[in-house]
């Protein structure tokens, strides 16, 4: 069986406080997507173009389907950059709800403060 993530060790690790396995995997997928983005777009363009002959369109679609799973954008998941938690991640700050509270109370998030009225 071929390796699930070939060349995982060549990709530079993110320099966060805590690198979990899930963060490393997701980081790898992000790098692979960025590498293969142009090729994917070209194949998608060929497949979606109705003015081309049916054979080339089908071939392009098949090639797109045969690309490895780690080059697909749908494989990428937004994770907490502090803890690696995959759920309830706040998009604007890229941290999960727990770390968001911690950082906000410390005053490390600019423009965020606890409400009072």
């Amino acid at each position: 069986m071929p390796p699930r993530f070939p060349g995982l060790k060549q990709v530079p690790l993110p320099g966060g406080p805590k690198n979990t396995t899930y963060i490393i995997r997701d980081n790898y997928k992000r790098h692979m997507y960025a590498e293969n983005e142009v090729a994917r777009k070209a194949l998608k363009y060929l497949a979606h173009n109705t003015s081309l002959p049916m054979k080339t369109r089908l071939e392009a679609q098949l090639q797109l389907h045969q690309m490895p799973h780690y080059t697909r954008p749908t494989e990428i998941k937004n994770r907490c950059i502090e803890s690696g938690y995959g759920r309830s991640v706040i998009k604007e700050f890229r941290v999960c709800r727990i770390k968001f509270r911690e950082l906000a109370l410390k005053g490390e998030l600019p423009g965020v403060r606890s409400s009072s009225w």
């Binding site: 530079p12 690790l13 320099g15 960025a34 363009y45 979606h48 173009n49 109705t50 003015s51 950059i81």
Partner: peptide, 28 residues
């Protein structure tokens, strides 16, 4: 007609997606 120009018109978002996590300490 559906010529697929919609795909080409989209901007590339690879660099933005790649730099989601903190910058690597191995490079700096």
């Amino acid at each position: 007609k559906r010529i697929g120009t919609k795909v080409l018109r989209e901007s590339l978002k690879g660099p933005q997606i790649r730099n989601y996590y903190y910058p690597s300490k191995q490079i700096l």
